[in-house]
Design a protein around this nucleic acid. Structure first.
Lengths: 186, 186
DNA sequence: AATCCCCTATCTAACGTTAGATAATTTAAA
DNA sequence: TTTAAATTATCTAACGTTAGATAGGGGATT
């Protein structure tokens, strides 16, 4: 998931992290430069120094998030771990988002909003999902239904996340993990 | 799904419909009284005559939406139709949202945003999901795993909807329908 | 000397909301 | 039955607040 050779300053990274959390909580529209500035202890105008426009900030947040997810999932290496192990890592990744932070994942949030986002941001979200689908497909290997399964898996995880957060029942993520096991076992 | 005996004026209903579409496209935050006013051909201040506060408007939109979904799904009557028929109606309902309008459903959008919504709105969203889960559970009848299945089904539909809209691939909803059939067939 | 980072100050546009006025309609009283 | 009162739906105008964004300046570090 390498897109930008961007080496951000420490403060820029603080801003990106704060923005990720705020987007995941309320969506892109709900994030303001003033709030971000307060989060990282500078003034709103200074945030513009690091990210001149909000759309660029949004895209940067998605790219950084994509890198973090890629790192958390790790490379696909079926000589080191089974298909089930790989998928378990995927489920853990999503479950952690909900259970640790009580938030849905960034892709889910931006996906929902995607019709109204600046093009740079929705494009980044689209890239993220495409990459994630590829990751799953390569985990599933040569199966003819790999593409379909990948979609069903991401769909299941995303949707369950929304239910878990809305109904304040984080344990629902377990049911998504069960469902994924069932999907792959056919 | 009866909550309010509210009999809205024709204009109020226009506003509710416009708001539903705008919320489903960009989320609650992205809806403004000015835009709604332009949609229905009056001024922003006049919208306040019908819905004094935005949170009340939001809750009213959800309640109305809930009624519409309830009407589309119809009552659970297993003497008139099979379990599969009932679930097919559910899938059609969601698929239509994406394929006809290119939008995710209202519950999905508000669910994603729920951490940042006015309490009245997120409560309405929670009510909607709870009702929908009940509907599915009563379709599934006495099965011990009815509650789990209901969650998995809604999760699958919601998540696939996000993928379908984000990736601009409305046909993905078919895969969700397949998955539901598989879930119930165990 | 130049670059980096943040500041103050300001801008325009938009936000939800309120006040007060105005027609048009409906209801009640004379 | 005409008149008076009240209600309905909208308007214009403005409120205070917040949005993203820009210009220009001031200390640091290199």
């Amino acid at each position: 998931m390498d897109d930008a050779p961007t080496n951000y300053s420490a403060k820029a990274i603080e801003i990106l992290e704060a923005a990720e959390i705020r987007i995941r909580r309320g969506g892109f529209e709900a994030v303001s430069y003033r709030d971000l500035a307060a989060d990282v202890g500078i003034k709103a105008a200074s945030v513009h120094y690091h990210f001149p426009q909000k759309a660029l900030l949004g895209a940067a947040v998605v790219d950084r998030y994509s890198d973090k997810v890629a790192a958390a999932l790790g490379p696909v290496d079926l000589t080191q771990a089974t298909v089930e192990d790989h998928l378990q890592r995927l489920c853990d990744c999503y479950a952690a988002a909900v259970q640790d932070d009580g938030m849905i994942c960034l892709g889910c949030m931006l996906g929902a909003e995607s019709k109204d986002l600046p093009e740079a941001v929705s494009a980044a979200a689209r890239r993220f999902f495409t990459w994630l689908l590829d990751w799953i497909e390569s985990v599933l290997g040569e199966r003819a239904d790999a593409a379909t399964l990948a979609i069903q898996m991401i769909g299941t995880l995303q949707g369950t996340m929304i239910l878990a957060v809305t109904l304040k029942r984080p344990e629902l993520m377990d049911k998504a993990a069960d469902q994924l096991k069932r999907l792959v076992a056919v």
